[in-house]
Amino acid sequence: MWDVLLDVAGSALIVKRAGAGVHAEPGDRGTLRRGTEGPMATQAVRDLEAKADAAWKNLTAQLAGMEPYLERADAPGEWTAREVLSHLLEGDDWKPAAILASFAERDLPTIDIAPGETFLTPARRAMTLKQLVDGLDAQRREVFTYLRGLSESDLGRKARIPLFKSFMGTDEIPLPMFVGAMYDFHMNDHAGQIAKIRKAVGLPAV
């Protein structure tokens, strides 16, 4: 999805991503917590999860029968299906719950996003469709396990994301908005890309 450099100063949780490494240290805020099950989640989290589940169903439906076509794109110069899935997985060091835990009420972390990376490694070139999908599903579950443990006030935490300012009018982005961008809008957008590849290789529309 995005190449992220995240730097939180002071005694807070520090999550830094610069190229290959993620470093996380627990501090006075944003401590990673195991979430509780669905009934304890806030309505806002349940709504986010419902939209994310719908996006996930869309993506996995588009991927049905795509195993032989992972190296195909819908047009020259476009990403292959494998590249799309690797992009959604982010880098090998991507720790989504740690990123979310860094959001704060003040002294906001800055997340600098550089779109357009596929993060395609030699290991990912050898992965099956199931392995790629399982990796995405594990990340998605990690995110919502974390979110279910948050209170309404926790959901008010923000990060500074300069890229969002051009279309949101502000770079101070609340945690739910970031999650929605990742697991609703972004996933649906790339499900649409897979749909184009399906059409190009002659698979039926879903």
Score class of each variant (00 low, 15 high):
M1S: 00
L6S: 13
D7L: 08
A9H: 06
G10W: 09
G10M: 09
S11D: 15
V15Y: 10
A24F: 12
A24I: 15
E25C: 14
P26Q: 08
P26E: 08
G27R: 09
D28K: 10
G30D: 09
R33Y: 11
R33S: 15
R34D: 09
G38L: 13
M40L: 11
T42G: 12
Q43R: 13
R46D: 03
R46W: 05
R46T: 06
D47Y: 03
E49N: 12
A50H: 10
K51I: 02
A54C: 08
A55M: 01
N58M: 11
A61L: 07
Q62D: 03
L63F: 04
L63P: 06
L63C: 05
G65Q: 01
M66P: 10
P68Q: 03
P68L: 02
P68N: 07
R72Q: 15
A75L: 09
P76R: 00
V84C: 07
S86G: 03
H87A: 00
A104P: 11
A104D: 14
L108P: 09
I111K: 13
I111V: 14
I111C: 14
I111R: 08
I113C: 02
P115G: 12
G116D: 05
F119N: 01
T121W: 00
P122F: 02
P122G: 04
A123L: 11
A126E: 14
A126R: 15
M127A: 10
K130R: 13
Q139A: 09
T145M: 08
Y146Q: 01
L147D: 11
R148E: 06
G149A: 02
G149M: 01
E152S: 08
E152V: 12
G156H: 08
A159K: 03
R160E: 05
I161Q: 01
P162M: 03
F164V: 11
F167A: 00
T170L: 07
T170E: 07
I173V: 15
G180E: 00
A181S: 01
D184R: 05
F185Y: 11
H186R: 00
M187S: 09
N188R: 15
A191M: 08
G192P: 10
A195D: 05
K196A: 13
K196T: 01
K196W: 01
G202S: 01
L203R: 13
P204A: 14
A205N: 11
V206G: 13
V206E: 12
